[in-house]
């Protein structure tokens, strides 16, 4: 009799364990389907940041070297070529982004994809707009004062950086990351300080009457600083997202 009771207890125990394992597997499956895979975003940020870091350093040094050693006209030409090269690089990155998106869309949940799409727009839409501004400036030529174009580019730079920092804040909110929210607030303060200081940091390196050359020869220190901040923001975001791996609105649990 006692053996029968013991057998019943053992069977009951096995049943409980089996049921517990099934329920835990069910819970895990549901959570996996709703977690945001920040690892995907991390690699996107890193690739974007590294490509533009390499490109920006190359542009900075080559323009400085050419400006010191060559004529103003050559400097402008080099700057123009580098500008056009930017858009080629961005176009290639965009194609790679679309291919990556198509690949991960089959395996990731909609929440990860929404965040992936948001950052896709953030990374590539400003470049498309910049290209439009650039082409308008080139087509308008001398009829458009250089200072107007410079102001337009500065305003655009401010808007682009503002959008970037808002995206970081939103990503922090969506994934429950307090770190990202704090980083976005600090960056916003830096941006305001950078673009509102009273010192005139713009300088034109050539006095050519040719507008096209003026446009390409103009160096904006603030925009350069903002660009490098942006690059390091992407690299920092990349490392952070890869380390964090997963995100949720309610934080890590």
């Amino acid at each position: 009799m006692s053996e029968q009771i013991s057998d019943i207890r053992d069977n009951s125990r096995e049943e409980s364990v089996r049921s517990a394992m099934e329920n835990i597997a069910l819970i895990r499956r549901m959570i996996d389907h709703t977690e945001i895979n920040m690892h995907r975003l991390g690699w996107l940020f890193l690739v974007y940041g590294l490509v533009f870091l390499a490109y920006s350093l190359f542009e900075l040094f080559s323009t400085m070297i050419v400006a010191r050693t060559s004529t103003l006209q050559t400097t402008g030409t080099v700057s123009m070529i580098l500008s056009l090269l930017t858009y080629v690089v961005i176009a290639v990155l965009f194609v790679l982004f679309l291919r990556k998106r198509a690949a991960i869309a089959k395996i990731e949940n909609e929440y990860t994809m929404k965040l992936f799409d948001l950052w896709g727009v953030m990374m590539f839409a400003p470049a498309a707009l910049e290209l439009v501004i650039y082409l308008v400036a080139v087509i308008a030529g001398d009829s458009l004062p250089a200072i107007s174009v410079a102001l337009l580019r500065i305003v655009f730079s401010v808007l682009k950086n503002t959008a970037l920092y808002m995206c970081i804040f939103f990503t922090g909110h969506y994934t429950g990351s307090r770190v990202l929210k704090i980083v976005s607030a600090v960056l916003m303060i830096l941006l305001i300080a950078l673009f509102s200081c009273g010192i005139s940091l713009e300088r034109t390196v050539m006095s050519e009457s040719n507008y096209f050359m003026q446009l390409n020869g103009m160096i904006s220190i603030r925009s350069t600083i903002a660009s490098f901040i942006q690059i390091f923001v992407y690299l920092g975001m990349g490392i952070y997202c890869i380390v964090k791996q997963r995100g949720s609105v309610h934080g890590d649990e």
Binding site: N23, L26, I27, M30, I31, H33, T34, E35, I36, Y111, Y174, S248, V249, H250, E253
Partner: peptide, 15 residues
């Protein structure tokens, strides 16, 4: 099971 699935799904964010 369905209630457990609903609660598990809502752990990360509102749906």
């Amino acid at each position: 099971k369905l209630r457990l699935m609903i609660i598990s799904a809502l752990i990360r964010q509102p749906l």
